[in-house]
Design a binder for these strands. Structure first.
Lengths: 389, 389
DNA sequence: GAATCTTTGTCAACGGTATGGACAAAGCGG
DNA sequence: CCGCTTTGTCCATACCGTTGACAAAGATTC
């Protein structure tokens, strides 16, 4: 078991950084809060907290905002986060319309622009990315903390997009390119994964430490947050469940296999199934409306798609014993009948006690989730705003 | 996202502990090694390393063992681990014969005893545990580092066995009981998971940081090592893949569902299938021998079981993108035909690029894996001998 | 209203721990 | 034999969290 690489040593600077981010997180999470309260929460002394808060104030990240009520002694001085102290450039390249936005430290969108690809891919798509960032940075903004990108396909930890079919990108070192061009810290991650992290961080209040967010749209991909952190797998392909074979004798998938989940439950697949059943609906909302209005054939199409997802969910539950499963993406417009089929199938196919405690919830079409997730990754890496359990 | 619990502060003592375990690990992994070499590896100064090695020597964990060859200067003093400096009490409660053993710091078995349960369960089975530990501790031994237990069923992080069907244990706080009775640090973990960790730590040399070890015997369970650490899931049930439904119209399982993986691919299920096919073999080795001798029916039975496992493996690959999958347990005696069926089915059902790089290997019947894993958990917690990547 | 108690935030002294420089010991090469 | 290199240790220094004390300022009690 001789591993040549060694974990890094611990230094005083690291302890300092850790405690600094602890204080920042207290201010971030618990709104206006006194130094003494932070000291009680973190276990640090009031002295240390005072010093660290001083640094935050110096960096403009925190500010005194008045006094709190006394509890029998001197009034505490309340310190609050300055949400607008930094801006983060975020990009969502997961749809055929690229979106770029400036977010503040709370994940609030301050500026947003987008541009349709018009079928462009390769270098032209990359040019669109540059245009969007250039335009965003031309607008008034606070000091930039970094650039966060959610991109489709398989993205490695270095920020290289190894394989993104729809954009014809292979081994595109997007992270390095952006860093070289703009000079800011840059993170590139898979869009489904970013969305999963966003859901985990911004959406819930008292979650367990694991969450799976499945994005179901043109493709199907899941982001896995395990023990509070995004899990990538050995080849950065964790969560790529769209190509698990569900029906070995099913239709051919563009990946070459037969009966992949995507051939049954993705948005295009559902519309194909509807057409095959003789239904005249060309979009998912139309299909959903028909089903809600009592069209049994439409309902059956929805349910069949739901059951396939339910099978995958059962596998997720059985393998990971995860409590929270969030479904998002364009297909969620199918609404309750579809969800019901998913829940039924997931329950039918997994161990009772596990399935019973699982919550399968609607994450909506998740407009900003990818942007938020990319932002969250930056906040974690640059400011240490990790969420442990 | 107000979480009331906070991560703990960092202290100087923690930096010290971290660096101490870094030095220990260098000595542990890289055999006799000089202080200067440790300093280069860890990035610590020779001063710090000298001090820390001094502590290890004081604790008896390390010892100077001579001089190394000069490389143009003073000969280095080599420091080596004293493998026998501590003993760990380990228990494997996963089979119907309980095993207890004393292991040294290298995981070498120094003493081993076992006792058949003779069908006992509940408190009587617990009494057997006490007997075994009493007897082991009555033998000559080094200072005890702690007690590590691999137990079947669902075990939570506190060391309570929430549910172990075969032993009729529910909510048995085994960890607390053992700690109260013997006073040593105690860890109780699921046996499959312990075995997975053992495989990860002791077996490979340059693994990726993820590994799934599937134990296939009377039951089927997997241990998940993700990013170098055991993953438990929200309800400590991660890896309980035996009850994922593979054939919705299959046979009834004792869990109440139909067509669970265990109803098809566990040892008893395979023997049932053999009987149903009119074969006269009552044990797996007999079945394997017949298949190897050209019995096509026996071969077909083996392959059917293998394909079911292969389906589960495909799900694991698709969800986790894990490179290394180890199969162990009594069913591995079926040998190559069975493995081939697993590999074929796993490949057929998962995305090409992923499946191609996956290694599905034979972990054997894994006699001591659970003991080793329990030992490894203790080494990690008590001495910080974690293996990062 | 005065005295006492509580709580807050800060300051100075202290202690643990990693670092850097210096140095003796000990071997190699010319 | 002399210079160079490497090793292990000693000493002084710097970083940073802790401890104890204290002033400020409000609450509580008499």
């Amino acid at each position: 078991m001789a591993r040549t690489e060694f974990p890094t040593k611990a230094t005083h600077a690291q302890t300092r950084a850790h405690n600094a981010s602890l204080v920042l997180r207290a201010v971030y999470d618990l709104g206006p809060i006194s130094r003494a309260e932070i000291a009680r929460l973190t276990g640090l002394t009031r002295t240390s907290v005072g010093e660290l808060v001083g640094e935050l104030e110096h960096d403009g990240l925190a500010r005194e905002v008045g006094r709190g009520p006394s509890t029998g002694g001197k009034q505490p001085t309340l310190v609050s986060l300055v949400a607008d102290a930094r801006h983060v450039v975020t990009l969502d390249l997961g749809e055929r319309t690229f979106t770029a936005a400036l977010l503040d430290l709370r994940g609030e969108v301050r500026e947003r622009i987008s541009r349709d690809l018009d079928g462009e891919d390769g270098d032209n798509a990359l040019a669109v990315v540059y245009e969007l960032v250039d335009e965003l940075l031309a607008r008034p903004h606070q000091p930039i903390l970094g650039i966060g990108v959610g991109a489709p396909g398989i993205v490695d930890v270095e920020g290289t997009i190894r394989w993104a079919v729809n954009l014809s990108w292979t081994d595109l070192a997007l992270g390095n390119l952006l860093h070289a061009r703009y000079g800011y810290p840059t993170i590139v991650a898979n869009d489904s994964r970013a969305a999963a992290l966003a859901t985990f961080l911004f959406d819930g209040d008292d979650r367990p430490s694991n969450l799976v967010a499945i994005k179901i749209g043109r493709g199907i991909g899941a982001g896995l947050v395990l023990d509070g952190e995004l899990f990538g797998g050995d080849g950065d392909g964790a969560g790529e469940i769209g190509h698990i074979v569900v029906e070995p004798d099913g239709a051919e998938c563009h990946c070459g296999r037969f009966g992949c989940l995507e051939t049954i439950a993705s948005a295009p697949a559902i519309l194909r199934a509807a057409a095959a059943a003789g239904l005249p609906y060309a979009t998912l909302p139309e299909l959903a409306a028909a089903a809600d209005a009592g069209d049994d054939t439409a309902l059956a199409v929805e349910r069949a798609a739901g059951r396939a997802i339910g099978t995958a969910v059962a596998n997720l539950i059985g393998i990971l014993d995860v409590r929270d499963i969030v479904l998002h993406g364009s297909v969620t417009v199918l609404g309750e009948p579809w969800f019901e089929a998913i829940r039924d199938e997931a329950t039918r196919r997994s161990l009772g006690p596990l399935a019973r405690e699982t919550r399968i919830v609607d994450g909506g079409t998740g407009e900003d989730l990818t942007l938020l997730g990319a932002c969250a990754l930056l906040l974690t890496r640059e400011l240490g705003l990790t969420v442990h359990r």
